[in-house]
Each structure stands twice: as structure tokens, then as C-alpha cells.
Write a protein that binds this DNA or RNA. Structure first.
Lengths: 269, 269
DNA sequence: AGATATTTGTTCGTATGTATT
DNA sequence: TAATACATACGAACAAATATC
């Protein structure tokens, strides 16, 4: 309809002095994109146009674009026809950005499993009878990694990670984006926790076979479309995993302390 | 101390050509900060030092700093003693960043309540007997907003938001940062959903008094330290809320459709 | 209170790189 | 191969903010 290409709060110089100019520019560009209902792949105006549009110099505009790029909202290409394009934030980037928030918080195994314990059973329940043959096959493919008894610690460690990959893959099939993301985020967090990496390097008798057994039964329930059973199996699995992990955490911590302070047992308070 | 302040991958020009230079610089600076175990409040080198350090121009360094600032990892101040400082990512920023990920996904009321339904009962259980008098008082303070019958739609809407604030406040008391954040994020999502805003503008008979009743009983259980009761009350509350919201969603959608297609069902009043 | 020094913030001009045609 | 269109990067200058004296 109209070709009015300058709707937003552009040229006003002294609006909210709380943000720096590039940040304001980034917010303005974002609003501009949202107002137009632009979709992933759509091209933003070039730097020159943005400069004219917002009355800012190149450097400022570039910083603003960097801000949006860091948030995963745009990507930029050079060359003719290049420029900034609207981008759907990838799950990996979302996980990384959210991970920054928890970087200074002290997250423990108990915190993570408190959520996994309730979320993954819901996930299993939802997925019952809704998985394609391909998806089932992909899950069984991951399970192959821990069919055999591990010969070395390295293999055992890889199997532990594959076990987590199984859950992450399952979560990626969730019809609920919130649930899927949350489960995968928690699993990612688990993988990064140093205490977990220590635990995963220890032998845990029976852990592999028991876990494999849970997952076989889970797959059967999912195939059969028995949501209640799938949920119950997952719940039991999570409960058992939490128990093992917390036990091992205690062991590892005790070991760590005795390494650091020979003779001392614990810390008061 | 040592004066060799150039440990990271600085001057090598052509290693990972996947990222742009500012992004690489941002990553390098971030690694540099992490390696030194810097804490919130610690000061980064000034722009001039970073330029020398990484052999890049001012603009490039500034773009890198903007990237980190956009992620909430640093904040910058001007003036003497100013510069870039390590910053703990605020919850609000984390919520906004994560919200971007779900912007293009289609999130519905059902998705949100599927999580709230299991998470908030856990929250209630955890908090039983662990709230200070101040925290209880703060909760009761929020409840004051919806003690009276609303005279206008605006007041009713404000009361609905206060009801969500009650849950958000409760979540902020969680000893589990993951659980607290997740609950608050879901509530924030709910507030932003346009369908919810429509629902909140409609009168829902009994919703306020029933909700208030749930929360009074919840507070009692929390005070008494009865985790089981708190969990059960919250579970019932969430279930009821989900039911109402989904019913209203259907009503609003039907109305929306009939508005778009005149000739179908007439509008009463 | 005011001057000054320090540090980031912003702009301009120019040159380089890169991908399309 | 050359021409074009666009982002990318550099360097120098100036402006604004703010702590200290």
C-alpha cells in the first residue's frame, strides 16, 4: 500500500538516555523488524540506508547490528545482495545465552535432577504413540553405543554421554517447544558440570545395564502408545539416576576434599 | 606479578575463518575472562589496551565489547576508572534473550501450563517452611491487590497480572535457580502472549475468589511447613487455571473468527 | 564549585575483502 | 576478467561523561 518507509522513532536525538546509542539503535531496528512482521530470511536495509534512516554514523549502526547478531536475531553476509538478514535463533545459541545466566550461580546435580525428574516423565507421556519409525530408529541407533560392556574408561565415558544424547534426542521430538528446550538445556548443563565429568569418569557398577533396560522398556511403551507406562518408566529412571548421581557426587567430593586437605574430613558450617 | 599480558590467541590472523573478527575478539575476550576466573565487578583492560593486545582497530574492539554487552556479560562506564566490567547476567536479560528463541515458535497456553503444572507444585513443596516472615509478608502484600471485587475491566486486568506476580514472587524465593528462573520465564511468557491479554480482559466469574482461596491455603501450608499440602494445593490450582485458560482460549478464538467472518454468530451486548 | 584528566562514545574518510554478474 | 555492490576494517579526530583534585 503505502511506501512510507520511515515509521519508527528515528531522528529524535534525546529520547531515553539510559541506553547507549548503539543499543538504542539495536532496539529500534528490532522494533522496526517486528512491526513489519518480517520473517527469517528477510533482508534488512543496508548499512547506508540504516545510517540515513536512523541518522547515525556507520560505526554506530555496525555496533547495533553486532548486538542483534550476538543475540542471534540476524546474520550478515558480504558481497552483492548481501546485508543483514532476519534469523531464527538457533537452539544452540539460545542454550549458550541462557547458560551465561547460570554461569555465576551455583548449580548442583540436585537442582538439575529436581527438574529432570518431573519434566522428562511428561515428555515421555506426550511422545507415546507419536514417534515416527525414523525417530524410533534414531533413538535405537544412539542406544547402540552402549550395548557392549566398555573396555576402557574413555569408552565408558562416551557411553554415559550417549545415554544423555538419548534423552536429548527424545526431547527434540517434543511437540512442546518449551518442554523440549528445557530438557535439552538441562542435559547440556549436566554435560558441562565439572562434577559430572568427574563422576562420569568413575566406574558405576550396573549403571549401564540398568539404564539400558529402562530405555528398552521406554521405547516399547512409546511404540505401544502407552503414555502412562512411558511416564512411569521415565519417572523411575530419573529417580534412580538422581540417586546414583548424588551418591557419586558425595564420593567424588569426599575424594576431592581429602586430596586438597590431607587429614581433614569436612568443613564446619 | 607477571607483565606478560598476552596469553591468548592474539596475533594469529588466519586460524578460524568461520567467525567475523569482532566475534572472534568477543570469544577471545570471554575466554580470557573465564581463564582468569574473573568475578562480577572486575575490570577488563581498556579499549586502547585491547586494541594493542589483539592488534585490531578501535571499531573492531568496540564491536566485540558490544557483543559481550548484548549478552549481558559486561557493562561499560565512561570516565576515569571507567571501562568494561564483568557483569552477572540479570534475570530480566536472560528472560529476554531466551524469549527471542521462542519468538518464531508457536507457543500456546497448553504448552506453558504443561510445564507450570509440574514445576510450580515442586516449587511449593520446596518452599514449605523455608520462607522468612518478610517473604510471607511480601506475598500477602501482592495478594492485597485482588482482595476487592474489581469495578472496571482495567482493575480486573491488573488483578490478573497481580495473581501472576504472586507466582513469580514465589518462584524468586526458590533455592533452585533453575526452577525459579523457569517458573518466572513461563509466567513472563504468559503475560506477553496476546491470546492471554485478550483472555485477561474478559470477565471470568469466580476466577478471582477461587484463586485467592487457593493462595490463602497455600500460604497456610507454606507457613506450617507442610510440603505435601503445599504441593497438592498448587497442583490443583494449576490444573484449575489451565482448565479455565483453555476454555477461555476457545471462546476468544471463536469470537475472533466470527469477527473476521461476519454473518456467522452475532455478538451479544 | 570548577578545572582537569581519563576513558568511553561517535563520526568521517578511506581502503580492503568478498561474492555476484 | 572486469565491474559492481555490499560488508569489513582501519585510523584519526572530536564529543560526551565522570571521577578526582
Amino acid at each position: 500500500m503505502e511506501e512510507d518507509t520511515s515509521p519508527p522513532a528515528t531522528t529524535l536525538p534525546a529520547d531515553p538516555p539510559r541506553m547507549s546509542r548503539p543499543q538504542r539503535a539495536a532496539a529500534a531496528i528490532k522494533d522496526w523488524v517486528v512491526e513489519r512482521g518480517m520473517r527469517p530470511g528477510d533482508r534488512l536495509p543496508g548499512e547506508a540506508e540504516l545510517m540515513a534512516h536512523f541518522g547515525m554514523a556507520k560505526g554506530t549502526i555496525r555496533e547495533a547490528l553486532r548486538v542483534l547478531e550476538a543475540q542471534g536475531l540476524i546474520r550478515t553476509r558480504t558481497g552483492p545482495g548481501g546485508g543483514a538478514f532476519v534469523n531464527e535463533v538457533s537452539e544452540a545459541r539460545a542454550r549458550a545465552l541462557l547458560g551465561n545466566y547460570f554461569y555465576f550461580k551455583e548449580i548442583g546435580i540436585t537442582d538439575i535432577y529436581e527438574l529432570r525428574r518431573v519434566l522428562e516423565p511428561v515428555l515421555a507421556h506426550d511422545l507415546a504413540g507419536r514417534l515416527s519409525a525414523d525417530q524410533i530408529a534414531a533413538l535405537e541407533d544412539v542406544m547402540q553405543v552402549y550395548q557392549e560392556r566398555p573396555d576402557t574408561i574413555e569408552i565408558a565415558e562416551r557411553q554415559r554421554f550417549a545415554e544423555l544424547d538419548f534423552h536429548a534426542l527424545l526431547a527434540s521430538f517434543s511437540p512442546n517447544p518449551l518442554l523440549g528446550f528445557q530438557c535439552r538445556f538441562l542435559i547440556g548443563l549436566l554435560k558441562e558440570l565439572t562434577i559430572c565429568r568427574r563422576i562420569y569418569r568413575r566406574p558405576i557398577p550396573g549403571f549401564r545395564t540398568v539404564g539400558r533396560d529402562y530405555q528398552s522398556r521406554l521405547i516399547e511403551a512409546l511404540k505401544a502408545g502407552d503414555g502412562g507406562a512411558a511416564r512411569a518408566i521415565m519417572r523411575a529412571h530419573m529417580l534412580a539416576a538422581q540417586k546414583v548421581m548424588e551418591e557419586q557426587e558425595a564420593v567424588v567430593l569426599r575424594q576431592f576434599l581429602s586430596d586438597a586437605e590431607p587429614g581433614a574430613v569436612g568443613r564446619p558450617g
